[in-house]
């Protein structure tokens, strides 16, 4: 046992410095397609057609990309015309109503307790959520904790396209949480159903079942994006800046 103590004590600190500083290590995010200028509309339509999930929309002289539909297949980065690709991770977005948003800071500024429900996710999303309590991301330092019971939870994190057979469990978990409570959809399956829903067995969006406050897009969203979602909920981070603004720093 003493050996483990020494091993633990002598391992250097690995934890990311986000949100105080940007994380720049390679491989922390798959990146996302961003607005790209095209020489003419025909090229824009052609580029949009490469996307199998309709995440890219053509416009005059440019294409726009919707990260909440992107499945990171990278089809738009092959071929002659390619989408611009940006390796950021501040992807979380507030989608709940504004009154709730204005009221959120007071009780939740410092700390959140989180309950995770898997409603048909692909395991990769859960694996990324797990990374948050592991050494590299360690969300405990920011006051975020996973709680075993919904009675203690402030935030419900939902992953997966809400299958029929998990809907009841999701509703019961939500009902068991005390007010005020917040719901976060993690991953594109939970936001739009991605490649799996809507279908005969899955609803395809958390918002169709319970009121949704924050969505974290990605397939799967990297741990930093999920962390950004939690910080957004506490009001300690702002939403994703528009593409033409420079990245970096907390607002």
């Amino acid at each position: 046992m003493f050996g483990w103590f020494v091993k633990g004590a002598t391992s250097r600190v690995r934890t990311t410095r986000y949100p105080a500083h940007d994380e720049t290590a390679p491989g922390v995010t798959p990146g996302r397609p961003v607005e790209t200028t095209c020489d003419n509309e025909l090229l824009a339509i052609g580029l949009a057609a490469t996307c199998p999930t309709g995440a890219i929309k053509p416009a005059a002289f440019k294409t726009t990309a919707d990260i909440s539909r992107c499945v990171h297949c990278m089809a738009c980065t092959r071929g002659e015309n390619t989408m611009s690709w940006q390796a950021d991770y501040r992807w979380a977005k507030w989608v709940g109503d504004n009154a709730r948003r204005a009221a959120r800071h007071r009780p939740f500024r410092k700390s959140l307790h989180i309950r995770v429900v898997d409603t048909g996710s692909c395991d990769a999303v859960l694996s990324e959520i797990k990374q948050l309590v592991k050494p590299y991301y360690n969300m405990h330092r920011l006051g975020f904790f996973i709680t075993p019971t919904p009675r203690h939870a402030d935030v419900l994190m939902v992953a997966g396209p809400v299958t029929s057979q998990m809907r009841l469990a999701l509703l019961k978990t939500y009902a068991a949480m005390p007010e005020p409570k917040w719901v976060m959809a993690v991953g594109n399956c939970a936001i739009s159903g991605c490649v799996f829903a809507p279908s005969f067995i899955a609803n395809g969006s958390v918002a169709g079942v319970i009121p949704l406050d924050v969505q974290v897009p990605g397939c799967p969203p990297p741990p930093l994006a999920i962390l950004h979602g939690l910080l957004l909920l506490t009001g300690r981070e702002a939403e994703m800046p528009p593409v033409d603004q420079p990245l970096g720093g907390t607002p």
Partner: peptide, 24 residues
């Protein structure tokens, strides 16, 4: 925690060299 460090290193290696942490 030591295994977690190795797992995240493997994920970052995939992200860095293959462009996606789960190799999609």
């Amino acid at each position: 925690a030591q295994m977690d460090i190795l797992e995240e290193q493997a994920l970052r290696l995939s992200g860095q060299c293959a462009g996606h942490r789960y190799l999609y």
